[in-house]
Design a protein around this nucleic acid. Structure first.
Length: 579
RNA sequence: GCGCCCGUAGCUCAGCUGGAUAGAGUGUCAGACUACGAAUCUGAAGGUCAAUGGUUCGACUCCAUUCGGGCGCACCA
C-alpha cells in the first residue's frame, strides 16, 4: 500500500466519525487531500482536510483539525501536529512505514498498489499522422508522450490499448496517388507536378522502391514508345488509383519503422478505409439521425453540433452523398465505444482543438458518457518550433521542406529526444533547438540520471551486490536522524504515488522531474561521509548491507522510472571523448 | 470577429484538482579531486509570478478586463 493511500483512508474515516458525532454532513464525495509537506521536518504528509471542511461545518479550521486529530488512532504515528491555518502534519513511525509499505521489490509493490485506483479499460490514440509523408517532429513529440503515458497508466493498473488511426481514405490519399503518377510520368516526359500534389522528394524514393520491387501492374508501366500515343489524362486517373494504396502502405511502413526505432509501440493500426468498406461510417450517420441530431441543409446532412457547444453545425454527409472526415471519425470513436472502452483518450495536434466540441458532442449524442465513469478526453499537443542555430526551421509537407522524425533520431540519441519531449507538458509550446540539444548533450539531464544509476551499479561492483530483499522498516530505522538517507528514502517511497498521479492527470513532465530529483538526492546521499559503504563494510557490515539495500531501491526506482518514459537505464557509462 | 495555448530568475522551463518560505537546469561569481567515476559536489547572486480588479481563511493557480507572443477557424483529412 502507498503511505498516502493509508493516510487518506484514516483521514476519511475520522472525518466521517467527527461529522457523525457532531450531527454534520460531509460535502458530497468528500475525499481528503493528502499532500507532501514542504519539508520533512514538518512530517511525512499533511492534509488540509480541516480547511476543506471549514465551510461545510461552519467552524474554524483549527478547531476542526483538533477534533480530527483527537479521533485518530495514534499507533501508526510518532507525531501528529496541527500547523498553520489548520494543516494536520503526520509523521509516521518506522513500524507503521514498514508495515504499510511492505515490499521486497519495487515492481511487486507497484502491482500490489493497483487496487488503490479504479482500474479503467482505456483506449489511447496518439500520433495518427496522415500516411501521406514522413512524420515530422510534432509526431515525435506525440509519440514520446503518448507512449510514456500509456506505460504509466498500465503501471498504475489500467488496461490500456494503444492505437494509431490511419487516414487511408479520401482526398489526401487521392492526391498522394496522383503525386506518384506524376512522378512516374516525369521519368518519361517533362510535366509539371500540380501545386496541390505532394511536392516532397520522398515520393520519388518510394516510387523507385515500388518499381524495383515489381509492385506496379504491367498495364500501367510506361516506356519511351508508349509515351507518344498515351492518353495522359486517362492514364493519370488510372495510375493514381493504383498508386494510392501502394503509396499509403509504403509510407505507413516507413512510419512504423520510425516509431519502432523511437521505441513507440501500438497494439493496432486502425484503418479509416476499413470503416468505409464495412459501412460503419454511414451507419454512424444513421445512428445520429435516429437520435434526432441530424438535419438536412442545402442537400447535405449536418450533425447538430451546436447543441454541444460547437460554433456551427457540421456537415457529415456531403450533398453528393459522400461522408466527411468527421463522420468517419465519429464512426471510429463509436467503434471504440462498441469495443467496450470506457475511457477514450486521444492526443491531437494543435490544429484540431476546434474539433473537440463536435466529436465529443457526437459521442454524447450516441449515448457515451451516460454510464458513470465513461469519459472522452482529448489532449491537445501544442506546437513544436524546431530551431537550428536559433533560427526557426520551416515545416511544410506540401513544399517538401521539413524536418522529419527520422532526421531527428539520426541527429540526436533517442534517449535524449524522448527525455526532452516529456520534460514539457503537452499543453505548452515547445522550442526544440537542435544545436542546443547537441551542444549540451553531455550536460543533458538524461545523462545525469543515467550517471546516478551507473554510480549505484559501480557501488555494487565495488562493494558487493545488495541483499535481494528490501526491508522498508529496517531502512526507515537506519535513516532516522540521517538527513540524506531520510530525504532519499521518503522520496523513493513516493514513486508509486507519482505513477498514480500521472495516470490521472497526464502530466508527464513530472516523471523526468522526479527522476532528476531522485538522482540529486542520491548523489547527495552518496557524498555524505557517513554513507561511505566501502568504509562501513569492515566496521559495520549490517549497516553497509542496509545502505546497499537503499541503493538497490534507488536503482529500482530509476530503472523503472526511465523504462516508463522509454529511456535506457545504463549501468555503466563511457565517455565519448577524452577532455 | 470567434476559439485554443502561452506570459514565472539573464536564458530554457517546473510549480502536483487553491495551501506553509515561488523551485530546478543553464549562464555568472566564489570554492572542492591522495574520494565506491569530477559526466560530480558545496555556496552566492539573480523574482512586483505581464498588468489591473474580483472571489476567500489563503491566489502563480479560479473569474473578469487589458497588454504582449503563438496557433486554429472547409461539404480537406
Amino acid at each position: 500500500m502507498t503511505l498516502r493511500f493509508f493516510l487518506r483512508q484514516i483521514v476519511a474515516a475520522v472525518a466521517e466519525s467527527v461529522a457523525k458525532e457532531t450531527g454534520l454532513v460531509l460535502p458530497d464525495g468528500f475525499a481528503p487531500r493528502i499532500d507532501y509537506t514542504p519539508d520533512l521536518k514538518f512530517g511525512h504528509y499533511a492534509t488540509p482536510a480541516a480547511m476543506e471542511l471549514a465551510k461545510a461545518f461552519r467552524q474554524n479550521p483549527r478547531a476542526i483539525a483538533e477534533k480530527l486529530i483527537a479521533a485518530i488512532d495514534g499507533r501508526a504515528f510518532s507525531k501528529i501536529e496541527l500547523a498553520g491555518a489548520g494543516f494536520i502534519n503526520f509523521t509516521l513511525n518506522q513500524t507503521a512505514i514498514g508495515k504499510v509499505a511492505a515490499f521486497a521489490d519495487l515492481n511487486a509493490w507497484l502491482v500490489s498498489n493497483e487496487s488503490e485506483i479504479h482500474s479503467d479499460k482505456v483506449i489511447f490514440e496518439y500520433v495518427s499522422a496522415n500516411p501521406t509523408g514522413p512524420m515530422n517532429i510534432v509526431s515525435a513529440r506525440a509519440a514520446s508522450v503518448g507512449d510514456s503515458l500509456t506505460r504509466i497508466m498500465k503501471a498504475a493498473g489500467h488496461k490500456v490499448t494503444r492505437e494509431y488511426y490511419v487516414n487511408d481514405y479520401g482526398n489526401q490519399v487521392e492526391k498522394l496517388g496522383l503525386s506518384f503518377a506524376y512522378r512516374y510520368l516525369q521519368k518519361f516526359k517533362a510535366v509539371t507536378l500540380p501545386e496541390d500534389c505532394y511536392q516532397g522528394e520522398y515520393v520519388i524514393e518510394y516510387l523507385d522502391a515500388m518499381l524495383d520491387a515489381g509492385q506496379v501492374d504491367n498495364a500501367l508501366l510506361l516506356s519511351a514508345d508508349k509515351i507518344a500515343s498515351l492518353n495522359e489524362a486517362e492514364w493519370l486517373a488510372q495510375a493514381s488509383r493504383v498508386f494510392a494504396p501502394l503509396g499509403v502502405s509504403a509510407i505507413l511502413g516507413e512510419q512504423q519503422k520510425d516509431l519502432k526505432s523511437f521505441r513507440t509501440e501500438f497494439d493496432r493500426f486502425f484503418s479509416e478505409a476499413s470503416l468505409h468498406a464495412s459501412g460503419a461510417v454511414l451507419a454512424a450517420g444513421d445512428a445520429l439521425e435516429k437520435k434526432g441530431k441530424v438535419a438536412v441543409s442545402d442537400g447535405a446532412k449536418v450533425f447538430l453540433s451546436k447543441e454541444y457547444g460547437d460554433d456551427k453545425d457540421r456537415v457529415i454527409v456531403r450533398s453528393d452523398g459522400r461522408p466527411t472526415y468527421l463522420l468517419a471519425d465519429i464512426a471510429y470513436h463509436a467503434d471504440k465505444v462498441a469495443r467496450g472502452f470506457n475511457s477514450i483518450i486521444d492526443i491531437w495536434g494543435p490544429d484540431h482543438h476546434g474539433y473537440i466540441a463536435r466529436l465529443s458532442g457526437a459521442l454524447k449524442a450516441l449515448g457515451f458518457g451516460e454510464t458513470p465513469g465513461q469519459q472522452f478526453k482529448v489532449i491537445i499537443s501544442q506546437q513544436v518550433n524546431l530551431l537550428e542555430n536559433g533560427e526557426p526551421v520551416v515545416m511544410s509537407k506540401r513544399l517538401g521542406k521539413f524536418q522529419t522524425m527520422r532526421d531527428l533520431i539520426q541527429k540526436i540519441p533517442v534517449d535524449v529526444c524522448r527525455y526532452f519531449f516529456v520534460t514539457r507538458g503537452l499543453n505548452t509550446h515547445l522550442d526544440f533547438d537542435l544545436t542546443l540539444a547537441l551542444d549540451q548533450s553531455k550536460k543533458n539531464p538524461v545523462y545525469y540520471v543515467q550517471y546516478a544509476n551507473a554510480r549505484i551499479h559501480s557501488i555494487f561492483r565495488e562493494c558487493g551486490e545488495p541483499p535481494g530483499h528490501i526491508n522498508i522498516e529496517h531502512l526507515a530505522v537506519s535513516a532516522a536522524g540521517q538527513a540524506e538517507r531520510e530525504a532519499l528514502l521518503f522520496w523513493l517511497l513516493r514513486f508509486p504515488e507519482l505513477v498514480q498521479d500521472i495516470a490521472r492527470n497526464y502530466e508527464i513532465q513530472r516523471l523526468p522531474e522526479y527522476l532528476y530529483q531522485t538522482a540529486t538526492l542520491f548523489t547527495s546521499f552518496y557524498h555524505a561521509k557517513n554513507n561511505r559503504i566501502k568504509d562501513l563494510l569492515a566496521a559495520n557490515a549490517g549497516e553497509a548491507a542496509l545502505l546497499l539495500s537503499l541503493c538497490n531501491l534507488t536503482t529500482q526506482v530509476i530503472e523503472t522510472g526511465l523504462a516508463l518514459i522509454g529511456i535506457t537505464a545504463v549501468r555503466e557509462m563511457h565517455r565519448e571523448d577524452a577532455d
